[in-house]
């Protein structure tokens, strides 16, 4: 489905992504973990066309999409949500989703119909329900709670019916309760839609609870990959990443 081959990107002297090769199976649910500055977000940016790699290839569905810009990547079916909710501050929830659905259906340029009455609203309402946002339909994005903003961010990506969905720390900045709600929602989403879902996460409990496979990035390189249980017991991972956490927890 999505194949990354020897991807490398450096900023000045710092190598943010160093010879990364990964393969994501169709309809898989995988997590990418790693300490701060491990190059996780850079990795996402390389895939979605926000950044151009120095070398290496990205193969999506048999096509080489290396160096494609954001727009083309999105049109191929790779959607993403952001670490900090990336919204349209003056749009209501419903308007945001309707606009996203219209874009997906290539109806954004229509001039002779009313935005408030387009058929795409039905789909937008469905998505709103999936994310339990229907009560917030008329609220402008900048007035939403942090959790709802994150939900809407993911919902926007989902409105494009992506075949690959990249979520960058979906639970960042949330309280414990909100977190689990979000994770349940993501899991349900994946079960219902069966797209290839890749998410970046800090919280190990979350990762080990839902991910099928886990890839560990450290200093831009792939440190380990495998099922959650394998990762949990991988000594390199424990040393590089989990170790600190476990120590902290122990204290």
């Amino acid at each position: 489905m999505l194949k990354i081959e020897h991807l490398t990107k450096s900023f000045g002297g710092v190598v943010a992504t160093n010879d990364v090769s990964l393969h994501f199976q169709p309809a898989s649910l995988s997590a990418i973990i790693g300490p701060n500055g491990a190059g996780k977000t850079t990795f996402f940016n390389l895939i979605t066309g926000g950044l151009r790699p120095d070398s290496g290839r990205i193969i999506f569905d048999g096509e080489d999409i290396t160096g494609f810009d954001a727009l083309t990547t999105v049109r191929r079916g790779i959607g993403r949500a952001f670490q900090v909710a990336n919204l349209f501050p003056e749009f209501t929830v419903r308007e945001s989703l309707t606009a996203a659905v219209l874009s997906h259906r290539q109806q954004s340029a229509h001039l002779l119909v009313q935005f408030s009455a387009v058929e795409a609203r039905t789909r937008a309402d469905q998505i709103m329900e999936m994310f339990d946002l229907q009560e917030r339909a008329g609220v402008v994005s900048r007035n939403l709670s942090h959790g709802d903003q994150k939900l809407l961010d993911i919902a926007l990506a989902l409105a494009l019916d992506p075949r690959v969905l990249l979520l960058d720390e979906p639970t960042a900045g949330m309280g414990p309760e909100e977190r689990w709600k979000m994770i349940d929602m993501i899991y349900k989403l994946w079960e219902d839609e069966r797209m290839t879902l890749i998410f970046i996460e800090h919280d190990m409990d979350i990762v080990f609870r839902i991910a099928q496979t886990v890839r560990v990035l450290c200093y831009g390189q792939v440190l380990a990959e495998g099922a959650p249980e394998e990762i949990r017991s991988n000594p390199d991972v424990i040393k590089a990443y989990l170790g600190e956490n476990f120590e902290k927890i122990a204290q």
């Binding site: 954001a70 727009l71 999105v74 993403r80 990336n86 919204l87 501050p89 874009s103 997906h104 954004s108």
Partner: peptide, 11 residues
Amino acid sequence: DNTERARFLGV
């Protein structure tokens, strides 16, 4: 409102 996000939504 958000040019970058619009681009990521296929605009």
